[in-house]
Amino acid sequence: MPDDARPAHRHPRAVTLVALGGALGAVARFGVAEALPHAYGDVAWATFVVNIAGAFVLGCLLEALTRSGPDTGARRSVRLVLGTGFCGAFTTYSTFAHDIVTLDRGFGVGVGWAALHVTCGLVAAAFGAVAGAAATSRRRA
């Protein structure tokens, strides 16, 4: 992918990498949804699991890539495939928002579930960043 003045979405290779990662992430999310089905109005554990796992993976990946050097070459390709593509398709804000609105447990429970979901996502991303930093430090040693 040449480093010219064009934005990343104008590079066919970058778009292809994101699409490839996105296809894999969508299939993985479907697999989790099949493994953890929920009835309409119940807590959607599949959505929770994919969003928390995705936050962890993204935190780990971005920290490791940032510590490894500039966002060029193979590091950029990995970021596009795994970060933007896979994690972008694996995680789901729209389903999370829909699940909160349709949660059949009352307003307070919905707000509490949303707060827990977001808080756990932030904590998972932080733990992922720590894991990414540790993995990068071990490789350099």
Rank of each mutant, 00 (worst) to 15 (best):
M1V: 06
P2N: 14
A5L: 10
A5Y: 08
P7E: 04
P7V: 00
A8F: 07
A8I: 09
R10C: 03
R10Y: 00
R10M: 13
P12E: 03
P12S: 09
P12Y: 03
A14D: 14
V15N: 09
L17D: 02
L17I: 01
L17W: 03
V18N: 10
V18T: 08
V18Q: 12
A19Y: 02
L20V: 05
G22R: 13
A26K: 08
V27N: 10
R29P: 01
F30I: 07
F30E: 15
G31K: 12
A33T: 12
E34N: 11
E34T: 01
A35P: 02
L36F: 03
L36S: 03
L36D: 12
L36N: 13
P37E: 08
P37L: 04
P37K: 10
H38V: 00
Y40I: 00
G41D: 04
G41I: 01
D42C: 09
D42W: 03
D42H: 13
D42Y: 01
A44E: 06
W45C: 00
A46C: 06
A46T: 02
A46H: 09
T47E: 05
F48L: 15
F48R: 08
V49I: 13
V49M: 09
V49H: 12
V50K: 11
V50D: 10
N51L: 05
I52A: 12
A53S: 15
A53T: 13
G54T: 04
A55W: 05
A55D: 03
L58P: 04
L58T: 01
C60D: 05
C60Q: 12
L61M: 11
L62G: 04
L62Y: 12
E63F: 00
T66S: 15
S68P: 03
P70F: 02
D71W: 04
T72D: 13
T72M: 08
G73L: 07
A74C: 08
R76N: 09
S77Q: 13
S77P: 04
V78S: 05
V78H: 09
R79N: 08
V81F: 05
V81P: 06
L82N: 10
L82W: 06
L82P: 10
G83H: 14
G83D: 01
G83A: 08
G83F: 02
T84E: 06
T84D: 02
G85M: 12
T91D: 02
T92C: 05
S94M: 11
S94A: 07
F96T: 03
A97C: 07
I100H: 10
I100K: 12
I100F: 00
V101H: 15
V101W: 05
V101E: 14
T102L: 14
T102K: 13
L103S: 10
L103N: 11
L103Y: 01
D104K: 09
R105C: 07
R105V: 01
F107E: 11
V109T: 15
V109K: 11
V111G: 07
G112K: 11
G112H: 09
W113R: 13
A115S: 08
A115L: 14
V118K: 11
T119S: 10
C120N: 07
G121K: 10
L122M: 14
A124T: 03
A125N: 07
A126F: 11
A126D: 04
F127H: 07
G128E: 10
A131H: 12
A131F: 01
G132Y: 03
G132L: 01
A133T: 06
A133C: 03
A133S: 11
T136F: 06
S137A: 15
R138Y: 00
R139D: 09
A141F: 07
